[in-house]
């Protein structure tokens, strides 16, 4: 074995460059090529298209309000899903957890038989508790027992719905306090309460995700859990909390759904988790974790909603929306994979 240490022929010096200040135009360009930006443009184009085609019906205040109302509960579920998916997880149980939490909340308020703010608060508390408990159960199985997220939440999806049927005997609870229905149908300055609540939740979630330590740890855990653990981040606890948060938000969505439909809608939430995943993925959150945003999820919630509504108003069979969104989701994930490949091939 020879020991000739060859002197580097092409010495490439390491320049002592001062790091440039954040370049605005470059940041702007990076922002413009991100998935939420592309999808945002698509959303605006769709919106303009339907507005031009049907200016009186599509762009009417009544119709826009409907679009927002339809999107409200899904947005809250998708917010929790965004956190979970950025951390590299998955939550199939949120639809069933919503139903279970709604049943618990409705039964509580029914048993109280009153119609006061206190009734409402009690119902909300029970609903949040029920949702949060399922979320923590999921988080415990996933982070401590190391059962895969897909299987854990598939299991609790069935179990939570089954328990909801057991509690109700298979019949929807339809006695909802009037005050909750006021929130479900009422408005503040012309904006429905549901939309106000959802907007607040989305803004708080976005701020926490992008500006705080909790949010930063969510990204780190999704990007490289082993590195996060080595850096002293309590990964298990963080994952537990994220699933808890997802369940908690499902509990909140349950109350909003109760207020809007005045029934526990046992059968109505089977596809909720899939719609939430669709929205999150359309919004540019990676299936592999580590990247994503709440604003992207907002866009991802509205694209299917606007498309479905627009098709109905145009007289196109709304089933086309399912077809279109199905293929768009596949395309979105494909593009995400291409990006990752080109990025990791350094």
């Amino acid at each position: 074995m020879s020991q000739t240490i060859v002197a580097p022929t092409a010495e490439d010096p390491v320049p002592t460059t001062v790091q440039p200040p954040p370049n605005l135009s470059r940041r702007l360009r990076a922002g413009m090529t991100s998935s939420p930006a592309y999808m945002g443009v698509i959303l605006v184009v769709l919106f303009l298209f339907f507005t031009i085609m049907r200016p009186d019906t599509f762009a009417s205040l009544f119709n826009l309000r409907n679009i927002f109302l339809d999107a409200a509960t899904l947005m809250i579920l998708a917010t929790g899903m965004t956190y979970v998916m950025i951390a590299g997880g998955f939550d199939l149980s949120i639809g069933s957890v919503l139903v279970f939490a709604g049943v618990c909340g409705a039964k509580t308020m029914e048993a109280m038989g009153t119609n006061t703010v206190f009734t409402l608060v009690a119902g909300l508390a029970v609903s949040l508790l029920a949702g949060g408990a399922w979320g923590l159960f999921n988080g415990f199985c996933i982070s401590r027992l190391r059962v895969s997220a897909l299987i854990t939440t598939l299991g609790s999806m069935g179990a939570a719905l089954g328990m909801a049927y057991l509690v109700t005997g298979g019949n929807d609870v339809r006695t909802v306090p009037k005050m909750l229905m006021t929130i479900g149908h009422g408005t503040v300055f012309g904006v429905p309460w549901l939309v106000v609540i959802t907007t607040v939740v989305a803004i708080v979630a976005g701020v926490v995700l992008h500006m705080t330590k909790f949010g930063r740890h969510t990204f780190l855990v999704g990007s490289n859990p082993e590195a996060a653990r080595r850096a002293g981040i309590n990964v298990q606890r963080h994952v537990l909390l994220l699933y808890g948060l997802s369940g908690l938000l499902a509990g909140l969505a349950a109350m909003l759904s109760l207020g809007r439909f005045s029934t526990t809608t046992l059968e109505g939430h089977g596809t909720d988790p899939l719609e939430a995943v669709t929205a999150v993925v359309l919004g540019g959150t990676s299936l592999y974790g580590g990247s994503g945003s709440i604003i992207g999820t907002v866009v991802g919630v509205f694209i299917p909603a606007v498309l479905a509504n627009g098709f109905i108003i145009m007289g196109v069979q709304p089933f086309w929306q399912m077809v279109v969104i199905g293929f768009v989701v596949i395309a979105a994930v494909y593009v995400d994979q291409l990006k990752r490949q080109s990025r990791d091939r350094v």
Binding site: R216, F219, L220, N224, A227, G290
Partner: peptide, 11 residues
């Protein structure tokens, strides 16, 4: 490599 690839150097 004990880094989070999706985040910035400073993160």
């Amino acid at each position: 490599l004990s880094v989070a690839p999706d985040l910035t150097p400073s993160a």
